[in-house]
Design a binder for these strands. Structure first.
Lengths: 193, 193, 193, 193
DNA sequence: AGGTAACCGAGACGGTACGTCCCGTCTTCTC
DNA sequence: GAGAAGACGGGACGTACCGTCTCGGTTACCT
């Protein structure tokens, strides 16, 4: 099975260029959105040749994902809160999410990412492995710790986060603090025995 | 107040062209997806001048939405089931949704639509007014009829549908029949007093 | 034999664009030479989309040829001089050629054309049909009128013009007035019985 | 006066690489022509780093010239024939030239070389010094030996060779044996008193 | 004999131009 | 006046090479 694809040598990769590209992508996706973001635009702002982007990423979706991961990993320690009050912990998580999405720049970025995913299963997998998956698992673990059992936890966390994503992606309503409370209240009623 | 915008006369509009365009758009969005769908491609397949499309729709998002509406309205009778068994009715609705999304062609179409609205608030509004809104309202009404009260129904229906959209859009898991059951079970536990 | 090639409709061709392209090409070939002339450069200077060039010409060689033809046809009435003094007529022609080639801008243009020809037989044919051929024929006719016979006129005119092209293209020596005289003297000795 | 230009040490030059480069260039110029020949292509086929080419040659024109010289020097003994029959000697030379140009591979190579010198005066000078000049001088000497005098020999040899180059470069006609005879006949008539 | 400087292969880099695909507008001609 | 057709100025695509620049590795000279 002869590999015809020229695979560049990661050892020789320019860290400076990589950073510049991710930064430029981050800025541009916030400024103009995913659809209007162009590889040429990223290359130009990063002061980089287009080929340097195409050498390391297959398409703009991959660049945007990497840019997002670089951004969130920078924020780093995103662990699920673990007090002894489940309701309070859930509220913290939702409010924090709502807070982030209220930032227009971040919102545009995140929306772009989810848009990109729709046409690229590989990208979607990566996002799940490196971001959504761990987070969903952490959420389920928090529920288990709270003594929740005899319940399909996967469905539970999907309802928990899904309600928010649904509202936000389809723009069927605003993400208010009251909405957080309602969702949490309903969830807890569903989970309590 | 002179209107500068050239508003074409809808009376003279060619129904034949309109149909051809919507059909072409429907086919193409299923075949190549939203991103790779082009106005020129639609015009060409529809045997129509590009101007005819630009005259009646502002952009490809609008065409795709119209194509989708034409498709679902054709199926017509989309009313929420109203037996005396709420659980059964909810199951019917979810299973039917799951069934539709299992059709690759439809799934690509629907995914395209949701992609399109991410970058176009006007489109999003239209979709909500003409499709999502009425359906959400019908769902809430069905719950009210079942005697559900003292509960934030908006949050409830968001959790109901959101769980599915979340799984499907983020591809965090498969949409199985068991998953439907789990979601409905949780929802009913949350709604029952 | 189905023609798959999209042949644009010449009737709809924009004369304004055609002129702008030929003018831009003429200027650029004089300024930077053939090798460094780019389609993008021509399009940009002409205020024209690249596609408009690619629609009507197969490559930059064809554009340069057309530009050259437009230039010389503009000068128009290029007919071989016909006095009753053959030597004088030949001298007029050579001196005029030498004069043109002394103009750096024209020289670069002409050199470009001959360069382009070397890698494109079709181009070469066109040049011969529309420029070199008629001119060689006119030269031969002038010799016939002067009563030259029993001689291979094709070889004679090739020696006449070839000597100049040879010097000029290979840069083996300067094109002086004395050189003209020498060539003509030799040619006449070869032709006189 | 400090020399800023990095002059590599010729003593350390790799003869193996030099040969490989010239061979690769020779092959490629015959295969794809001068315009489509690339430094990267030569380096790749020669199994050589690009820098090794740029270290020893200023541009691809210089490489092609060197490749040509290596080729012809290999054939070596290029001395003008000197029998006591001038006409026969001239015929030998022309026929040999025609023979070479009939070889498509050589023809493409030679055409490339002449194309290259059009945009590079330095290259042109080198070609004249090392190839054309000596040969023209040898031709003139042969004519002198034959007792030709009172004639501009420079013009004579230009007409001799020029006729052929003219036909060949402009492709105004085929290079046949009869054409050789015609040119020689005319030349001799011009030179004989 | 060991150190070191230069050449070498490889190929990543910032760029320019390629030739193609569409965009949204404009123009022409037909029905 | 709507519609089919498609040319137009323009922007971006993804690719091919440019000429420069590191990066080990391998010579070949010089202490």
């Amino acid at each position: 099975m002869p590999e015809n694809v020229k695979t560049p040598d990661p050892a020789r990769r320019s860290e400076r260029s990589r950073q510049a590209i991710l930064t430029a992508a981050t800025e541009l996706v916030s400024e103009v959105g995913y659809q209007k973001l162009t590889i040429e635009g990223v290359a130009s702002r990063a002061g980089v040749g287009k080929q340097t982007i195409y050498r390391w990423w297959p398409d703009k979706g991959a660049v945007v994902l990497d840019a997002y991961l670089a951004l969130t990993n920078a924020d780093a320690g995103l662990s699920f809160p673990t007090s002894d009050d489940l309701e309070a912990d859930l509220k913290i998580v939702l409010q924090s999410t709502v807070g982030q999405l209220a930032d227009d720049s971040f919102a545009r970025f995140y929306r772009s990412l989810l848009t990109a995913i729709q046409n690229d299963e590989k990208l979607s997998q990566q996002l799940n492995e490196r971001l959504m998956g761990p987070w969903l698992e952490a959420t389920k673990e928090r529920l288990r710790v709270a003594g929740i059992a005899d319940v399909d936890l996967d469905a539970a966390v999907d309802m928990f986060y899904g309600s928010f994503y649904y509202r936000w992606l389809l723009r069927t309503g605003p993400l208010t603090s009251e909405y957080c409370d309602s969702v949490i209240a309903l969830l807890l009623r569903a989970l309590r025995p």
